[in-house]
Nucleic acid binder design. Structure first.
Lengths: 236, 236
DNA sequence: TCGCAATAGTTGTATATACAACTATTGACA
DNA sequence: TGTCAATAGTTGTATATACAACTATTGCGA
């Protein structure tokens, strides 16, 4: 039985949490200042400050320079959903996962794609289709358009051998992404890949990834609604 | 033209970001230690530390006590989707929103609900149905089950007058929530509310909210896939 | 060569201090 | 009474310092 020493600032955080949870400190009410907390708990101001700061980052408190620290309103908190890699998702369920490359070609972008990728019509992109399986049952179709200009050189040179995983890791860590989740009916081709009929509702995630130089890739993930769902568990 | 003074730690952050973005510092590679950065930028260790710490919170770096600070892998970053209140969503699109209470009754929980809400079969919950409109067109059906034991007293006493908004604000700030997003076909009743036919794919969000004392509420939001989508724009 | 203790280096926690930047109140003056 | 400057209080930034906790390497001894 090892005794874990608790850091001082976490003691203060716990105290504040309890006061809010118990209803003693209501929404919008003022929280003791850094100096007051420091004296109350016999710590330095910087330690008390850290407790307030971390709770602010968690969205529990709101701070205004010069005015003070206040208990946040419920409304100021947003709900976040985590979109996980389907391979990890399947693995966590204890099932078998494998992926099959169906298509991997270079294509000219049409008008619609040009807009989505920020390219000119007729320019060249890499297009790939990868089908994911859970216990040998098709579960997600992944369609991906990649801007070849923004992919590292070593991937461009032997394009035919790029695995889906390399696509992902080719995206630099400093990127932005736009995600959109929709419920749709899949087109005929997608249906045949996923072994579903055209009335099955599907979850579709469209993700565009940007680097500082432009749109890197557009990924379209389609999965039958009864087999895949997005989930999250959050603590406010 | 006011000159905004930039804090020292943001200068260091920007520098580190640039090194990663330009590819000079690759994934997994070691970042200069707090002491080295402090000397390089002629600041105190605590200032350099703050830069590293904030970038770690943003998921750009990974730190290990005793070992050092390293550039994070793309994989260690997760994609988050924001689920917004539909009223706010509609307002941001510049459209008209209004909500209509269809049903508001106390019901006994059946077996399925009992499991979802952590109650015993036959216990009492509040059930409400609220239909949301965008430009007078039905866009989302909100079904909500609320555990009356965990709702503040003042809401219990005049239950018939509770508005949907009060439901939300009755949830204490210190809660957990489990979200699940699915693509489904709506049942007959929901279809008639939303004026859609039974083949229209719908986005369905199931949200369970917990406080420290148990499950507070279960909310089921259903919206036609062609009218509503979840979206996000993130910067990693 | 193997095992292990010592050690240098790194991050984590905590304190004391100083000044800057901002807010809200107080109080004097017109 | 109304306006505005002074002021007290609060958060934001920055420094210097000390020690704790942990990691990985170095090098000694068997």
């Amino acid at each position: 039985m090892t005794q874990v020493k608790t850091a001082k600032f976490t003691i203060i955080k716990d105290h504040i949490c309890k006061m809010i949870e118990s209803g003693e400190w209501l929404q919008h009410s003022k929280v003791p200042s850094e100096n007051v907390l420091a004296e109350q708990f016999s710590v330095s101001r910087m330690t008390a400050r850290r407790a307030l700061q971390e709770l602010t980052e968690q969205g529990l408190l709101v701070r205004t320079q010069g005015a003070g620290t206040f208990v946040a309103t419920f409304k100021s908190q947003s709900s976040l959903l985590e979109i996980r890699n389907i391979a990890d998702e399947i693995q966590d369920r204890g099932h078998q996962h494998h992926a099959q490359q169906i298509e991997l070609i270079a294509v000219d972008v049409n008008h619609e794609l040009a807009i989505l990728l920020g390219l000119k019509e007729g320019e060249n992109v890499y297009y790939s289709e990868v089908l994911h399986f859970e216990n040998n049952e098709p579960i997600q179709l992944e369609q991906r358009y990649v801007n070849p200009k923004l992919v590292p050189d070593y991937l461009q040179q032997n394009f035919a051998d790029i695995t889906p995983h390399e696509y992902l890791s080719s995206e630099a860590p400093l990127t932005e992404a736009t995600n959109e989740v929709e419920a749709v009916l899949a087109n005929h081709e997608t249906c045949s890949h996923l072994l579903i009929d055209s009335t099955t509702p599907c979850l579709q995630v469209k993700r565009r990834t940007w680097s500082s130089k432009g749109v890197v890739s557009l990924a379209i993930l389609t999965a039958p609604g009864d087999k895949y769902r997005l989930g999250s568990h959050l603590v406010f």
